[in-house]
């Protein structure tokens, strides 16, 4: 059962990821990204990270990619890009070699060092019939006790991001009309 879930989710993730890299139309690329995000969300669920799966769908698929699509449509850059030209000679083969190399090194590290990692923490609560929201309770307890300062800082970060974006996207008429 879990094998089936893994295979389907992995297929979603990989097809989506390849789609992002290879599709020439930005909207198609964005939809491929959504496919990947859903695949990742499924994997989160199979790791008992139910809350993260929900947040992944709400934040990533529901807000971030919608924002991407919004910008694509608003700016009118939804025309397919010509991918047949290679601006720098040998850029693509080199990029593929570097990318595959990074993956290969990381995989080698994973496969060789795996034996040293056993269960060392306090445990991750599993969802059961008696406590369906065990994962959310545990996550909330850790976020609001051990990591409360980091949590508050992220809210400051979001505020800074919002203000910065408004300032950047704001255009004054004096610039436009040359006053």
């Amino acid at each position: 059962m879990e094998l089936f879930v893994f295979v389907v989710a992995a297929a979603m993730v990989l097809i989506g990821a390849l789609g992002v890299v290879t599709r020439s139309n930005p909207v198609h690329a964005a939809m491929s990204l959504v496919l990947t995000l859903f695949g990742i969300a499924v994997m989160f669920v199979s790791h008992n990270a139910h809350f993260l799966a929900a947040v992944q769908v709400i934040v990533y698929a529901g807000a971030i990619v919608v924002l991407f699509l919004f910008v694509i449509m608003l700016l009118g850059v939804d025309k397919a890009e010509d991918l047949s030209v290679e601006p720098i000679t040998n850029q693509r083969p080199l990029a593929v070699i570097i990318g595959v190399g990074i993956s290969a090194i990381v995989i080698a590290a994973i496969v060789t060092s795996r034996s040293g990692l056993g269960p060392s923490g306090k445990g991750v609560n599993e969802t059961t019939l008696e406590s369906p929201d065990a994962n959310i309770r545990q996550l909330a307890r850790v976020i609001f006790s051990d990591n409360v300062f980091a949590f508050e800082l992220t809210s400051v970060l979001l505020l800074v991001a919002v203000i910065g974006t408004v300032v950047m996207a704001r255009k004054t008429k004096s610039v436009g009309t040359g006053k």
Partner: peptide, 26 residues
């Protein structure tokens, strides 16, 4: 009755926008 319960409804309503957006764009 998924473990995330109502968050599921929220997630679904947040992806419901894709149908409309893509219909309009395509």
């Amino acid at each position: 009755d998924p473990p995330v319960g109502v968050l599921f409804a929220l997630a679904i309503s947040s992806i419901a926008v894709y149908g409309i957006m893509l219909a309009g764009w395509s």
